[in-house]
Computed example of a mutant assay.
Amino acid sequence: MRLRRSVIALMAVLGLALVSACNGDDNKDGAAAGDGLQKVSYLTSFNTFGREAYAYVALEKGYFKDAGFDVKITPGSGTVDVMKLVAGGQADYGIGDFTAVAITLAKQKLPVTTVGMIHQRSLAGIMSLQGMGINGPKDLPGKTIADQPGSTNQVMFPVYARKVGIDAKSVTFLPTPPPNLPQVLAAGKVQGIGQFAVGKPLIEKADPKHRQAVYLSYGEELPELYGNAIITRSDLAKDHPDQVKKFSNALLKGLQDTYADPDGAAAILKKYVPNTDVAVATAELKIMQEYIKPKDFNGPLGEVTQERVQKIIALLEESKAIGAGAIKPEDVVTLNLAPKS
């Protein structure tokens, strides 16, 4: 019995030592105890399409390593899932649509926050193909749209519908796994799909009739909306702000290089994700340029402002996507960690 107690005590000491090593003061500076790199887990916003290349660029060019991180990139499966995984500690950082983050946090108080923007304009919208009866917002009533339940495009649709003057309930959303969306649309089983603007090359390539895509952009009607944001746990942002800043800065360096050289970024993505279609990925990234830095945007990459966040919250309240007073800017973004002019 005495020997057993001694073994248990020794294991407890070793366990505490391990916890201390993993959570010691050095973590505040983005590095683990000793001379090693801190292991960090990161979720893409959705799968490993071309639009996600910037994280792999940061990995390939050593930006994460220079900041003190050993980063594992895992494909995400949409904003809400990314939020839940980060909140539960299965990932340290992730990417998700800012408006969907705000709507979700207004309904369930997950311990997550955003610390910077990937896109200064929303990429969300509805995509169709020529000849399928959708040429503008007024064509949507009575149509069926395929999308994954809980997707950004579906969560934000009522806000868009109110803006363009249609009844959101007049449009049917058909639950469909994301990998099946291009084929379901091409086969004419639905008239449209929920899709980001950058998905246009992929959708057109999947259509055997080679029809051009028709895109209804939420961002064009609602220019105040941000696109994807950098998500992390609230406690990480509060207790280790230097680590969060270093990680975000490294990721944004990868984004800047991707913006400057879409071809090079697509080639890097191909190295890490061998099934990447480089031509499609490059086309996605070229479309994404205008969302990373719109023509009227003069701020630093990743910028967030309280005024704009407040406008978004007001818009969501007006559209009844969230209840009045459900959230405040500080509930969805840690402004002191975001890049500033």
Results as ranks from 00 to 15, higher is better:
A168S: 07
D257S: 12
Y259F: 07
N228G: 12
I231A: 05
P158G: 03
Q191L: 02
T232M: 07
V155R: 06
A229S: 14
T152F: 14
D207M: 12
Q195F: 15
I193P: 12
I193M: 08
P175L: 01
Q154C: 05
D242Q: 13
K189G: 11
S234M: 13
D257C: 11
A187E: 15
H210R: 14
F196Y: 15
K253P: 11
K209W: 09
I145V: 08
L252I: 04
L185V: 03
T152R: 14
P177I: 03
T232I: 04
Q243E: 14
V184Q: 12
A197H: 10
V155A: 11
T258M: 05
P241T: 00
N153Y: 08
A206Y: 13
P201Q: 09
L174E: 07
Y226K: 13
V155E: 12
G194M: 04
G165H: 01
K169G: 09
F247G: 01
R162E: 08
G150L: 05
K169L: 10
K238L: 12
D167R: 09
T258D: 02
K205Y: 11
D242V: 04
Y215E: 09
Q243G: 06
R162H: 03
R162C: 02
L181A: 02
V184W: 05
P201R: 02
P178E: 05
R211H: 06
P208I: 15
R211L: 09
V171M: 00
G227Q: 04
D235W: 08
A213E: 08
Y160A: 04
Q148F: 12
V214I: 09
S151H: 08
T258Y: 01
R233F: 03
S170K: 05
K253Y: 08
A186R: 13
G142Q: 00
K271H: 15
G199H: 10
P208A: 12
V184H: 07
K189D: 14
E220A: 06
Y259T: 00
H240E: 13
F157L: 03
P149N: 08
G264R: 01
I230W: 12
F173I: 03
Q243D: 11
L181Q: 07
V155M: 12
F157V: 04
G199P: 13
V214M: 02
D207Y: 11
V155N: 09
A186T: 14
V155H: 06
F247N: 02
E224S: 10
V244L: 05
P201W: 09
G219I: 09
K271L: 14
K271C: 14
L222G: 02
L185G: 10
T152K: 14
L174P: 02
D147F: 06
A197L: 08
I145L: 04
G150F: 03
A237G: 07
A187G: 15
D261F: 02
D242F: 08
A266S: 07
S170N: 06
F247P: 02
Y226G: 12
P223A: 02
S151Q: 09
P208D: 11
R211G: 11
I231H: 06
H240Q: 13
S170L: 03
F173R: 06
Q212I: 10
N228Q: 14
D239P: 07
K143N: 00
P262D: 04
T144F: 01
F247S: 01
P262M: 05
Y259H: 04
V164F: 01
L185P: 13
D147P: 09
R211F: 06
P223V: 06
F196D: 15
Y218F: 14
S170T: 12
R211S: 11
T176H: 00
L252P: 08
T232H: 05
A146V: 00
M156H: 11
